[in-house]
Design a protein around this nucleic acid. Structure first.
Lengths: 149, 149
DNA sequence: ACTTGAAGCTTCAAGCTTGAAATTAATAAT
DNA sequence: ATTATTAATTTCAAGCTTGAAGCTTCAAGT
Protein backbone atom coordinates (compact mmCIF):
# COMPACT_ATOMS: atom_id res chain seq x y z
CA UNK A 1 0.00 0.00 0.00
CA UNK A 2 1.50 3.31 -1.12
CA UNK A 3 1.45 6.60 0.78
CA UNK A 4 -1.79 8.03 -0.57
CA UNK A 5 -2.69 11.17 1.33
CA UNK A 6 -0.27 14.01 1.95
CA UNK A 7 0.75 14.40 5.58
CA UNK A 8 -1.46 16.69 7.61
CA UNK A 9 1.32 19.20 8.23
CA UNK A 10 1.98 19.61 4.55
CA UNK A 11 -1.70 19.93 3.72
CA UNK A 12 -2.16 22.63 6.38
CA UNK A 13 0.66 24.62 4.84
CA UNK A 14 -0.72 24.27 1.33
CA UNK A 15 -4.18 25.30 2.47
CA UNK A 16 -2.78 28.33 4.28
CA UNK A 17 -0.95 29.40 1.13
CA UNK A 18 -4.15 29.01 -0.87
CA UNK A 19 -6.10 31.15 1.59
CA UNK A 20 -3.38 33.77 1.55
CA UNK A 21 -3.40 33.86 -2.22
CA UNK A 22 -7.17 34.16 -2.41
CA UNK A 23 -7.20 36.95 0.15
CA UNK A 24 -4.41 38.90 -1.53
CA UNK A 25 -6.14 38.65 -4.87
CA UNK A 26 -9.42 39.91 -3.47
CA UNK A 27 -7.68 42.67 -1.50
CA UNK A 28 -5.81 43.83 -4.59
CA UNK A 29 -9.06 43.92 -6.52
CA UNK A 30 -10.84 45.93 -3.83
CA UNK A 31 -7.89 48.30 -3.39
CA UNK A 32 -7.91 49.05 -7.10
CA UNK A 33 -11.69 49.46 -7.04
CA UNK A 34 -11.59 51.91 -4.14
CA UNK A 35 -8.78 53.84 -5.80
CA UNK A 36 -10.25 54.04 -9.28
CA UNK A 37 -13.95 54.36 -8.50
CA UNK A 38 -14.03 55.93 -5.05
CA UNK A 39 -10.78 57.85 -4.78
CA UNK A 40 -9.85 56.33 -1.44
CA UNK A 41 -7.68 53.58 0.03
CA UNK A 42 -8.22 50.28 1.80
CA UNK A 43 -6.86 51.35 5.21
CA UNK A 44 -8.92 54.54 5.19
CA UNK A 45 -11.98 52.50 4.26
CA UNK A 46 -11.33 50.01 7.04
CA UNK A 47 -11.04 52.72 9.67
CA UNK A 48 -14.15 54.50 8.46
CA UNK A 49 -16.04 51.21 8.46
CA UNK A 50 -15.05 50.46 12.04
CA UNK A 51 -16.07 53.94 13.19
CA UNK A 52 -19.32 53.81 11.24
CA UNK A 53 -20.32 50.47 12.70
CA UNK A 54 -19.33 51.38 16.24
CA UNK A 55 -21.91 54.14 16.04
CA UNK A 56 -20.35 55.91 19.00
CA UNK A 57 -16.97 57.46 19.78
CA UNK A 58 -14.27 54.83 19.89
CA UNK A 59 -10.99 54.82 21.76
CA UNK A 60 -7.87 54.76 19.58
CA UNK A 61 -6.85 51.51 21.22
CA UNK A 62 -10.25 49.94 20.55
CA UNK A 63 -9.87 50.92 16.93
CA UNK A 64 -6.45 49.35 16.49
CA UNK A 65 -7.54 46.17 18.27
CA UNK A 66 -10.62 45.92 16.10
CA UNK A 67 -8.59 46.24 12.94
CA UNK A 68 -5.68 44.10 14.13
CA UNK A 69 -3.14 46.85 13.47
CA UNK A 70 -0.61 48.63 15.68
CA UNK A 71 -1.46 51.75 17.66
CA UNK A 72 1.00 53.76 15.61
CA UNK A 73 -0.81 52.71 12.48
CA UNK A 74 -4.20 53.75 13.78
CA UNK A 75 -2.76 57.13 14.74
CA UNK A 76 -1.39 57.67 11.24
CA UNK A 77 -4.57 56.75 9.37
CA UNK A 78 -6.82 58.74 11.72
CA UNK A 79 -4.45 61.71 11.29
CA UNK A 80 -5.09 61.66 7.56
CA UNK A 81 -8.83 61.19 7.90
CA UNK A 82 -8.89 64.09 10.33
CA UNK A 83 -6.92 66.27 7.91
CA UNK A 84 -9.52 65.46 5.26
CA UNK A 85 -12.30 66.41 7.63
CA UNK A 86 -13.75 62.90 7.71
CA UNK A 87 -12.90 61.98 11.30
CA UNK A 88 -12.77 63.86 14.59
CA UNK A 89 -10.77 63.26 17.76
CA UNK A 90 -12.35 64.21 21.07
CA UNK A 91 -10.51 64.13 24.38
CA UNK A 92 -12.17 61.96 26.98
CA UNK A 93 -13.50 63.83 29.99
CA UNK A 94 -13.07 60.98 32.44
CA UNK A 95 -9.56 59.89 31.46
CA UNK A 96 -7.23 62.44 30.02
CA UNK A 97 -5.06 59.78 28.40
CA UNK A 98 -7.70 58.56 26.01
CA UNK A 99 -8.89 60.12 22.80
CA UNK A 100 -12.23 59.24 21.29
CA UNK A 101 -12.58 59.11 17.53
CA UNK A 102 -15.72 59.47 15.47
CA UNK A 103 -16.68 60.12 11.90
CA UNK A 104 -17.67 63.69 11.17
CA UNK A 105 -21.01 64.29 9.48
CA UNK A 106 -19.13 64.52 6.20
CA UNK A 107 -17.38 61.27 7.08
CA UNK A 108 -20.63 59.46 7.74
CA UNK A 109 -22.16 60.72 4.51
CA UNK A 110 -19.05 59.76 2.60
CA UNK A 111 -18.90 56.29 4.09
CA UNK A 112 -22.56 55.59 3.38
CA UNK A 113 -21.75 56.00 -0.30
CA UNK A 114 -18.51 54.02 -0.10
CA UNK A 115 -20.17 51.16 1.76
CA UNK A 116 -22.80 50.67 -0.92
CA UNK A 117 -20.20 50.58 -3.68
CA UNK A 118 -17.92 48.31 -1.67
CA UNK A 119 -20.68 45.86 -0.82
CA UNK A 120 -21.71 45.62 -4.45
CA UNK A 121 -18.13 44.94 -5.47
CA UNK A 122 -17.69 42.22 -2.86
CA UNK A 123 -20.94 40.73 -4.08
CA UNK A 124 -19.55 40.57 -7.60
CA UNK A 125 -16.25 39.18 -6.37
CA UNK A 126 -17.87 36.29 -4.56
CA UNK A 127 -20.78 35.75 -6.89
CA UNK A 128 -19.91 32.06 -7.01
CA UNK A 129 -20.79 31.57 -3.37
CA UNK A 130 -24.37 30.63 -2.58
CA UNK A 131 -25.95 29.96 0.80
CA UNK A 132 -24.51 26.44 0.94
CA UNK A 133 -20.93 27.54 0.42
CA UNK A 134 -21.36 30.39 2.88
CA UNK A 135 -22.62 27.96 5.50
CA UNK A 136 -19.62 25.72 4.92
CA UNK A 137 -17.27 28.65 5.09
CA UNK A 138 -18.67 29.83 8.40
CA UNK A 139 -18.35 26.35 9.86
CA UNK A 140 -14.74 26.02 8.78
CA UNK A 141 -13.69 29.47 9.94
CA UNK A 142 -15.21 28.84 13.35
CA UNK A 143 -13.35 25.58 13.56
CA UNK A 144 -10.11 27.23 12.51
CA UNK A 145 -10.42 29.83 15.21
CA UNK A 146 -10.54 26.98 17.66
CA UNK A 147 -13.30 24.73 18.93
CA UNK A 148 -12.96 26.21 22.40
CA UNK A 149 -13.14 29.90 21.57
CA UNK B 1 -43.64 34.84 7.62
CA UNK B 2 -40.63 36.84 8.69
CA UNK B 3 -37.43 37.39 6.72
CA UNK B 4 -35.42 34.45 8.03
CA UNK B 5 -32.14 34.23 6.10
CA UNK B 6 -29.90 37.21 5.50
CA UNK B 7 -29.77 38.30 1.87
CA UNK B 8 -27.01 36.73 -0.17
CA UNK B 9 -25.22 40.02 -0.73
CA UNK B 10 -25.00 40.73 2.96
CA UNK B 11 -23.81 37.23 3.77
CA UNK B 12 -21.08 37.43 1.14
CA UNK B 13 -19.82 40.66 2.72
CA UNK B 14 -19.87 39.20 6.22
CA UNK B 15 -18.02 36.11 5.06
CA UNK B 16 -15.39 38.19 3.30
CA UNK B 17 -14.83 40.19 6.47
CA UNK B 18 -14.46 36.98 8.45
CA UNK B 19 -11.89 35.63 5.99
CA UNK B 20 -9.99 38.90 6.08
CA UNK B 21 -9.94 38.87 9.85
CA UNK B 22 -8.74 35.29 10.01
CA UNK B 23 -6.00 35.96 7.48
CA UNK B 24 -4.79 39.11 9.20
CA UNK B 25 -4.65 37.34 12.53
CA UNK B 26 -2.62 34.49 11.11
CA UNK B 27 -0.35 36.86 9.19
CA UNK B 28 0.30 38.92 12.32
CA UNK B 29 1.15 35.78 14.21
CA UNK B 30 3.56 34.56 11.54
CA UNK B 31 5.14 38.01 11.15
CA UNK B 32 5.85 38.10 14.86
CA UNK B 33 7.16 34.54 14.78
CA UNK B 34 9.54 35.26 11.90
CA UNK B 35 10.74 38.42 13.60
CA UNK B 36 11.25 37.01 17.07
CA UNK B 37 12.45 33.50 16.24
CA UNK B 38 14.05 33.83 12.82
CA UNK B 39 15.10 37.46 12.59
CA UNK B 40 13.44 38.04 9.23
CA UNK B 41 10.25 39.49 7.76
CA UNK B 42 7.20 38.20 5.96
CA UNK B 43 7.92 39.81 2.57
CA UNK B 44 11.52 38.59 2.60
CA UNK B 45 10.28 35.12 3.48
CA UNK B 46 7.72 35.18 0.68
CA UNK B 47 10.30 36.17 -1.93
CA UNK B 48 12.77 33.55 -0.74
CA UNK B 49 10.03 30.91 -0.77
CA UNK B 50 9.10 31.74 -4.36
CA UNK B 51 12.73 31.61 -5.48
CA UNK B 52 13.39 28.40 -3.56
CA UNK B 53 10.39 26.66 -5.05
CA UNK B 54 11.05 27.87 -8.57
CA UNK B 55 14.35 26.04 -8.37
CA UNK B 56 15.72 28.01 -11.29
CA UNK B 57 16.40 31.67 -12.04
CA UNK B 58 13.19 33.64 -12.15
CA UNK B 59 12.40 36.88 -13.98
CA UNK B 60 11.57 39.86 -11.77
CA UNK B 61 8.18 40.07 -13.44
CA UNK B 62 7.50 36.39 -12.83
CA UNK B 63 8.32 36.94 -9.20
CA UNK B 64 5.97 39.87 -8.74
CA UNK B 65 3.16 38.05 -10.55
CA UNK B 66 3.66 34.97 -8.43
CA UNK B 67 3.45 36.97 -5.23
CA UNK B 68 0.67 39.28 -6.41
CA UNK B 69 2.71 42.40 -5.69
CA UNK B 70 3.83 45.31 -7.85
CA UNK B 71 7.07 45.29 -9.80
CA UNK B 72 8.40 48.12 -7.70
CA UNK B 73 7.82 46.08 -4.61
CA UNK B 74 9.66 43.05 -5.95
CA UNK B 75 12.59 45.29 -6.86
CA UNK B 76 12.78 46.70 -3.34
CA UNK B 77 12.65 43.37 -1.52
CA UNK B 78 15.13 41.72 -3.87
CA UNK B 79 17.44 44.72 -3.40
CA UNK B 80 17.51 44.06 0.32
CA UNK B 81 17.97 40.32 -0.03
CA UNK B 82 20.82 41.00 -2.45
CA UNK B 83 22.45 43.40 0.02
CA UNK B 84 22.25 40.66 2.63
CA UNK B 85 23.87 38.21 0.23
CA UNK B 86 20.82 35.96 0.11
CA UNK B 87 19.74 36.60 -3.48
CA UNK B 88 21.55 37.23 -6.75
CA UNK B 89 20.51 39.07 -9.89
CA UNK B 90 21.85 37.79 -13.21
CA UNK B 91 21.36 39.60 -16.50
CA UNK B 92 19.65 37.49 -19.16
CA UNK B 93 21.79 36.67 -22.17
CA UNK B 94 18.94 36.43 -24.64
CA UNK B 95 17.05 39.58 -23.65
CA UNK B 96 18.97 42.42 -22.15
CA UNK B 97 15.86 43.89 -20.53
CA UNK B 98 15.29 41.00 -18.17
CA UNK B 99 17.08 40.17 -14.95
CA UNK B 100 16.99 36.70 -13.48
CA UNK B 101 16.93 36.30 -9.72
CA UNK B 102 18.03 33.30 -7.69
CA UNK B 103 18.85 32.49 -4.13
CA UNK B 104 22.56 32.39 -3.38
CA UNK B 105 23.94 29.29 -1.71
CA UNK B 106 23.68 31.12 1.58
CA UNK B 107 20.11 32.05 0.68
CA UNK B 108 19.15 28.45 -0.02
CA UNK B 109 20.72 27.25 3.21
CA UNK B 110 19.01 30.00 5.14
CA UNK B 111 15.62 29.32 3.61
CA UNK B 112 15.82 25.60 4.29
CA UNK B 113 16.00 26.44 7.98
CA UNK B 114 13.31 29.10 7.80
CA UNK B 115 10.95 26.84 5.89
CA UNK B 116 11.06 24.13 8.54
CA UNK B 117 10.34 26.59 11.33
CA UNK B 118 7.60 28.27 9.32
CA UNK B 119 5.90 25.02 8.42
CA UNK B 120 5.89 23.92 12.04
CA UNK B 121 4.36 27.22 13.09
CA UNK B 122 1.63 27.01 10.45
CA UNK B 123 0.95 23.50 11.63
CA UNK B 124 0.42 24.76 15.16
CA UNK B 125 -1.70 27.65 13.96
CA UNK B 126 -4.11 25.39 12.09
CA UNK B 127 -3.94 22.42 14.40
CA UNK B 128 -7.74 22.36 14.48
CA UNK B 129 -7.98 21.43 10.82
CA UNK B 130 -8.01 17.74 10.00
CA UNK B 131 -8.27 16.08 6.59
CA UNK B 132 -12.03 16.63 6.45
CA UNK B 133 -11.82 20.36 7.01
CA UNK B 134 -8.93 20.65 4.57
CA UNK B 135 -10.97 18.89 1.91
CA UNK B 136 -13.88 21.25 2.49
CA UNK B 137 -11.58 24.23 2.37
CA UNK B 138 -10.09 23.19 -0.94
CA UNK B 139 -13.52 22.68 -2.43
CA UNK B 140 -14.71 26.09 -1.33
CA UNK B 141 -11.63 27.95 -2.44
CA UNK B 142 -11.84 26.37 -5.87
CA UNK B 143 -15.44 27.37 -6.10
CA UNK B 144 -14.63 30.91 -5.01
CA UNK B 145 -12.01 31.26 -7.68
CA UNK B 146 -14.70 30.46 -10.17
CA UNK B 147 -16.26 27.24 -11.41
CA UNK B 148 -14.78 27.76 -14.85
CA UNK B 149 -11.16 28.42 -13.91
C1' DA C 1 1.97 62.38 49.91
C1' DC C 2 5.20 59.59 47.11
C1' DT C 3 6.81 56.28 44.34
C1' DT C 4 6.19 52.64 41.23
C1' DG C 5 4.08 50.56 37.65
C1' DA C 6 1.03 50.32 34.04
C1' DA C 7 -2.10 52.25 30.41
C1' DG C 8 -3.20 55.24 26.32
C1' DC C 9 -1.57 57.63 22.82
C1' DT C 10 1.96 59.73 19.72
C1' DT C 11 6.43 59.99 17.56
C1' DC C 12 10.01 58.16 15.03
C1' DA C 13 13.01 55.34 12.05
C1' DA C 14 13.02 51.65 9.14
C1' DG C 15 10.95 48.92 6.11
C1' DC C 16 6.96 47.74 3.02
C1' DT C 17 3.80 48.86 -0.88
C1' DT C 18 1.68 51.05 -4.54
C1' DG C 19 1.17 53.49 -8.92
C1' DA C 20 3.20 56.50 -12.09
C1' DA C 21 7.14 58.08 -14.58
C1' DA C 22 11.54 57.10 -16.55
C1' DT C 23 14.93 54.07 -18.78
C1' DT C 24 16.44 50.69 -21.71
C1' DA C 25 15.70 47.19 -25.01
C1' DA C 26 13.09 44.24 -28.15
C1' DT C 27 9.53 43.94 -31.77
C1' DA C 28 6.57 45.57 -35.42
C1' DA C 29 5.25 48.53 -39.01
C1' DT C 30 6.14 51.36 -42.20
C1' DA D 1 16.60 52.01 -41.93
C1' DT D 2 13.33 54.55 -39.16
C1' DT D 3 9.75 55.05 -36.42
C1' DA D 4 6.34 53.54 -33.28
C1' DT D 5 4.82 50.39 -30.07
C1' DT D 6 5.30 47.34 -26.55
C1' DA D 7 7.81 45.01 -22.74
C1' DA D 8 11.00 44.54 -18.50
C1' DT D 9 12.83 46.71 -15.02
C1' DT D 10 14.01 50.50 -11.95
C1' DT D 11 13.20 54.90 -9.71
C1' DC D 12 10.53 57.89 -7.10
C1' DA D 13 7.06 60.12 -4.10
C1' DA D 14 3.46 59.23 -1.22
C1' DG D 15 1.28 56.52 1.79
C1' DC D 16 1.05 52.33 4.83
C1' DT D 17 2.86 49.47 8.75
C1' DT D 18 5.48 47.91 12.41
C1' DG D 19 8.00 47.98 16.77
C1' DA D 20 10.40 50.66 19.97
C1' DA D 21 10.90 54.78 22.54
C1' DG D 22 8.78 58.68 24.71
C1' DC D 23 5.20 61.41 26.97
C1' DT D 24 1.35 62.04 29.79
C1' DT D 25 -1.93 60.28 32.90
C1' DC D 26 -4.06 57.00 35.96
C1' DA D 27 -4.02 53.37 39.71
C1' DA D 28 -1.80 50.98 43.50
C1' DG D 29 1.10 50.25 47.11
C1' DT D 30 3.86 52.17 50.60
Amino acid sequence: MTEQTAPLTRRRLRTWLRILRLTRGAENHLREFLRAECDTTLPRFDVMAALYRADKPMKMSELSQKLLVSNGNATAVVDRLEQDGLAIRVASETDRRVKHVTLSDAGRDRFAVLARAHEAEVDKLFANLGHDELDMMRTIIRRMEGPSQ
